[in-house]
């Protein structure tokens, strides 16, 4: 249930393409993480979200304001 919220925040709420790209990025990273380092599990997606929001609080693909 939480995943769509994570995707939208990471992608940024100001465009449609932002969440789309974020969904691809997070989905690939999540599956890769689960495949390569299974013991980390759910950490990857949460950590990625926190890192992105640290660097770009408005989301990755938000338009500059």
């Amino acid at each position: 249930m939480l995943y769509f919220l994570i995707v939208v925040t990471v992608g940024g709420t100001s465009s449609l393409t932002g969440p789309l790209l974020a969904a691809l990025l997070l989905g690939v990273a999540d599956v890769m993480g689960k495949y390569l380092v299974p013991q980390l599990g759910a950490f990857i997606i949460y950590a990625m979200m926190l890192c992105v929001l640290m660097i770009r609080p408005q989301g990755l693909f938000a338009r500059g304001r």
Binding site: L2, L5, I6, V8, T9, T13, Q39, G41, A42, F43, Y46, A47, M49, L50, L53, M54, P57, Q58, G59
Partner: peptide, 28 residues
């Protein structure tokens, strides 16, 4: 220090993320 920037949605997700990571840590 993580909640100083961004909008309410960002703050909501950062606080949620911290709690989820701690939950996962306590689990592991």
């Amino acid at each position: 220090f993580m909640i100083l920037r961004g909008t309410d949605l960002t703050r909501l997700m950062v606080t949620l993320g911290v709690a989820l990571i701690l939950h996962e840590l306590a689990n592991r």
